[in-house]
Design a protein around this nucleic acid. Structure first.
Lengths: 227, 227
DNA sequence: AACTTACCTGACCAAATGGTCAATTCTTGC
DNA sequence: GCAAGAATTGACCATTTGGTCAGGTAAGTT
């Protein structure tokens, strides 16, 4: 006989399938409406199940939300294992930016749930921000600083650089509609748009770190700028 | 006798004061909960007025929201007049970033209402995005391109550079709690934090444009990187 | 086949929500 | 000081919301 707890994730086949289905629907609805704005009825409709079914599996809206957010935090953390010690700065940074942009393209709803949570002051994930995330930032900033020490790259404000990489990569998920509108993409951003954005972010970051030669200017009438 | 339209902004003294008061409260509540999640009751409480009073001045929640959003769009647009033709690229960009960061620091709630709207797919402001904002971006990108043509700065992807300036500046308003948590600021970000962030963004942008000499590396054991 | 457990869901409920309204008080121009 | 419009608000209402529950069906185990 298998242990199937009521609220956790038991291992009943049907249960697993339905929980996944509900969480996918919930992620979408929470992303679009935030916790307070989302209704269990609309989540049920999105999942193609009667509302009572949602409560059967998750109990309350708050617990369902918690499950969705925890899932996303786990995704975030797993994507963070990237940057490691004595790699090459340029390729490591570029790889990390590419990984982050892939998440923005493939899991925009997850990013938006997270964004909603932050805009609201992160009542439910502050411990994560002050714990795992803070630790991660500090350890990665230390690596950047070490690279600077070793003369592998130009001095930078390492923490702000990390923050700004997140800002630039996540804006393409969170505010996609803004960039699509401004670029005139009626059907939303295409893969090519993400590629172009990725290149632009990599250029910006590598130039910030002095890791990318500046293309020569059109009219070479001025002195070189850089040391 | 003065013309006081019911829904617009008549010039009754009391009316003006109360409308301002309600909109301020509404901005805060909408920022924290989005349109659907905000309740007229909580807006009323925040404003220190009975709920019926809110309806007396604005009719419906939707009209109030519209008024708040329009106000913010106007603020946004006015902050956009900045970048003009044949200025000096470096100081113009730096000034613009400083202005945008000042908005993030002084009007974070406005930024968050806007962010909420974008996350939701911008149902109510798409015309603005596809109109005024698109035009603004195109005209300013043209100026950047002109500077490149004139050899005043290195070639850049001008539109993405603008997008990323927004992303970096607005993240300090929209996701303040995240950065405060990671930096260990228990009482929220301080002015010094914004100053440091502003410097970091300016450095990144100017280096991207080849407008800032790179500080020399610690160990000058390698060849200069830039052309 | 019998039995146990997981799964399903229509019908229901109390609370919250956006909005209305009529009665009352406050302002203001004359 | 007084009439006319502006402002105020408690009480009320229809609808929506999160959540419950009883009575059922399907699935697995022996």
């Amino acid at each position: 006989m298998q242990d199937i707890s009521t609220d956790g994730n038991g291992q009943g086949r049907i249960r697993q399938e339905n929980e996944k289905r509900i969480m996918k629907a919930a992620e979408k609805v929470f992303a679009q409406n935030g916790f307070r704005g989302a209704t269990t009825a609309s989540i049920a409709e999105e999942a193609g199940l009667p509302k009572a079914n949602i409560h059967y599996y998750f109990g309350t809206k708050a617990k369902l939300y918690r499950a969705v957010v925890d899932d996303i935090v786990a995704l975030w953390l797993s994507s963070f294992r990237e940057i490691t010690a004595n790699d090459d700065p340029a390729s490591t940074l570029a790889d990390y930016i590419r990984a982050k942009m892939d998440l923005s393209r493939t899991r925009p709803e997850a990013s938006r749930v997270f964004a909603n949570e932050l805009i609201r002051g992160a009542p439910r994930i502050k411990p994560y921000l002050e714990g795992d995330l803070k630790d991660w930032v500090e350890s990665k900033a230390a690596i950047l600083d070490m690279w600077v020490e070793q003369g592998k790259m130009a001095p930078v404000d390492s923490k702000r650089l990390i923050f700004h990489i997140w800002a630039m990569t996540q804006t393409w998920a969170d505010f996609e509609v803004q960039w699509a509108s401004v670029l005139g993409r009626q059907d939303g951003l295409q893969d090519a748009d993400f590629d172009k954005a990725t290149d632009a972010i990599i250029s910006t970051v590598l130039r910030t770190c002095g890791l990318l030669p500046l293309p020569s200017r059109r009219h070479a009438t001025e002195m070189p700028l850089t040391v």
